[in-house]
């Protein structure tokens, strides 16, 4: 490699890096426009992810780390009770020994069991398909955690501090992946997707499943994909390839 080309690479890297650290900027692959202030989330959109597991390395935790930073989830070193919005699952076929790895988070189901079972309506689905916990009325009964097939929810087992302004969270309520709703509303894409593009192998793409022209819809219309526990009929918004 010559001096010149390595300098060019360096510059390219710097530009990409600058783009990466400015969330909400729509320089590369704009996922969406920021919704105008005062307007509600719309059923015209259905936000989702497509995750290509063939590009997901077993040891890579870029998405998980990015989520923890973005959402202000502390590591208290209590794995059984620490909050986890996204995790890397290693899957092995016991017959053949074939292994692959993939991130699992809230699957933002179209028919979410957590919403069905919630007694107060705290567990809710926004018009654009994002499943959230309204922690203003969550009583901490944990029935949604019993009902979720994906183990996507955590319970805040202790007092919290250093919360991010965009992710208020506190003891006694249930929480989970918000699909980075604060970024989506500002026209951005989820932190895990961004981290995967930056430091991983760009295994995740984010977009509008209702928009036929979005990258995610075009890919899904041409390539095979599947859902985790598709048999349950919940119609998750997170699609996978290679599982």
């Amino acid at each position: 490699m010559t001096q010149a080309s390595s300098r060019r690479d360096l510059l390219k890297g710097a530009v990409l890096g600058a783009v990466a650290i400015a969330p909400g900027l729509t320089l590369i692959a704009p996922a969406a426009q920021a919704r105008p202030a005062g307007s509600a989330a719309s059923a015209a959109n259905r936000w989702g992810l497509l995750i290509d597991t063939s590009k997901c390395d077993a040891g890579c935790t870029a998405c998980v780390d990015a989520c923890k930073t973005e959402m202000g989830l502390p590591a208290l070193d209590r794995p059984a009770t620490d909050a986890q919005y996204i995790r890397k699952v290693d899957v092995k076929d016991p017959k053949t020994g074939h292994q692959h790895s993939l991130p699992v988070m809230c699957q933002h189901c179209a028919k979410p069991p957590c919403v069905d079972v919630c007694p107060t309506g705290a567990s809710m689905k926004r018009a654009d398909g994002i499943v959230l916990v309204d922690r203003h009325i969550c009583i901490g009964c944990r029935y949604c955690m019993m009902a979720c097939p994906y183990k996507a929810r955590s319970f805040a087992h202790e007092d919290q501090s250093n919360q991010k302004a965009h992710n208020p969270r506190g003891k006694g309520c249930v929480e989970g992946c918000t699909l980075c709703v604060h970024r989506i509303d500002a026209g951005g894409r989820p932190a895990c997707v961004e981290a995967c593009a930056d430091t991983g192998r760009a295994a995740m793409i984010f977009g509008d499943l209702n928009d036929a022209n979005s990258e995610i819809s075009r890919r899904l219309s041409k390539q095979a994909s599947s859902r985790i526990r598709a048999d349950l009929g919940l119609d998750p918004a997170i699609r996978y390839q290679g599982i």
């Binding site: 919403v115 069905d116 919630c118 107060t120 009325i137 009583i139 901490g140 006694g172």
Partner: peptide, 25 residues
């Protein structure tokens, strides 16, 4: 044992009728 027993009133005033839990209340 609720995470937020102080919000018992919420359980009494917000009902999601699709939830068997709410019906049990």
């Amino acid at each position: 044992d609720l995470g937020r027993p102080d919000r018992l009133i919420v359980a009494m005033t917000h009902f999601n009728f699709k939830s068997i839990f709410a019906w049990n209340v």
